[in-house]
Design a protein around this nucleic acid. Structure first.
Lengths: 197, 197
DNA sequence: GTCTATAAGTCGATAGAC
DNA sequence: GTCTATCGACTTATAGAC
């Protein structure tokens, strides 16, 4: 593949991702994407089969990156506390690397799951859940984490807090992604209260 | 207004809310709404001016309920810990009372904010943020809450965890909304760790 | 209050010239 | 690889009969 066409594809995907994230997948038209790139809508179909194919490519490379990073975290031999931190940090790194894809996923899962093409999102979601549950349940079994809270509920609360940061977090030199990961982990592990009993 | 037409309006709004929540606002057509109600799409316009008008009515009655409940929580004279719990509980009660509206808001804010009609969502969001910040900052000032975490970041993490529960939480007799509110508050206040130093 | 019928526009996608 | 030109389907919304 020629160098220019690779860049062209990427440029189209970038514009598409930005629009999908901003307006939603269903509300974004192929004409709007073409306008952003500076070509006509028909020309998009030289590069992609359909609008859905663009979404698919954006989402699946995002999920693949996520899967790899979670795998790396899970194979480390650390205590539950550090492992939870690493899972939070890995998630936030993926948010930073794929902000548009993260937002597209968060806002459009329901819509995408209606389409046969995206049924794989179900198993991808389960795989993510299993990673978190593994860490949480290990922490409880070792006595490091409280046993009075349902692991699945803990997972969902933490997951949503972490992933939705894509909607508001803008990394800066003063407050980079690693700092948010620290604060996040500290809140979930130690809580908001200063003193206890 | 005749009794039947009130019920009819409500029935239409219920069907619309269910579809908007499930598929997204942009991806839901007026024909689908009419099908669910059992009438033809043209007949909807006897009851509502437009599809946007339906969304507007769903969202604004949801936000009005939320505003009232937060107001009641804030005027109670309780300690920061209880006040945070009450804010979480009030939010979850609103989730229970308006599950569709909550989900519509969460998944479609970006899309709705593009439309002039929904610019009021901006100030509504700020009002919600102020309620939470008031409680968090009071807790820090009184020494009940940690001072090393940015209140705005705390607010956003807690907010997203609480509101996104609409995507997965189904209240039951064994685990009602009040129990989730307890667990949620306990996690944020006391953390996941069993022992400390 | 719901129907029939349709206007007026936009949608995703295609065919073929260049 | 982008253009011109367009198809057919689908969209929101309206007008007027019943």
């Amino acid at each position: 593949m020629a160098r220019e066409s690779v860049d062209r594809r990427e440029a189209i995907l970038d514009s598409a991702a930005s629009l999908f994230a901003q307006k939603g997948v269903a509300a974004t038209t192929v004409r709007q994407i073409a306008d952003e790139v500076g070509i006509l809508s028909g020309s998009l179909y030289h590069h992609f089969d359909s609008k859905e194919a663009m979404v698919d490519e954006i989402i699946s490379s995002y999920l693949e990156d996520l899967r790899t990073r979670y795998e790396n975290v899970l194979k480390r031999e650390t205590n539950p506390r550090d492992k939870l931190h690493d899972l939070v940090a890995a998630s936030l790194e993926v948010v930073e690397a794929h902000p548009h894809a993260t937002e597209i996923y968060q806002n459009n899962v329901n819509y995408l799951l209606q389409l046969d093409r995206f049924s794989y999102l179900r198993s991808a979601g389960k795989q993510v859940q299993n990673s978190w549950l593994q860490v949480i349940e290990e922490g409880i079994a070792e006595g490091a984490f409280r046993a009075d809270l349902d692991p699945k509920i803990l997972y969902r609360l933490i997951r949503d807090a972490v992933w939705l940061s894509v909607r508001w977090f803008k990394p800066s030199k003063d407050y980079p992604i690693a700092s948010l990961a620290e604060d996040c982990t500290s809140l979930f592990l130690d809580g908001l209260t200063t003193t206890r009993a």
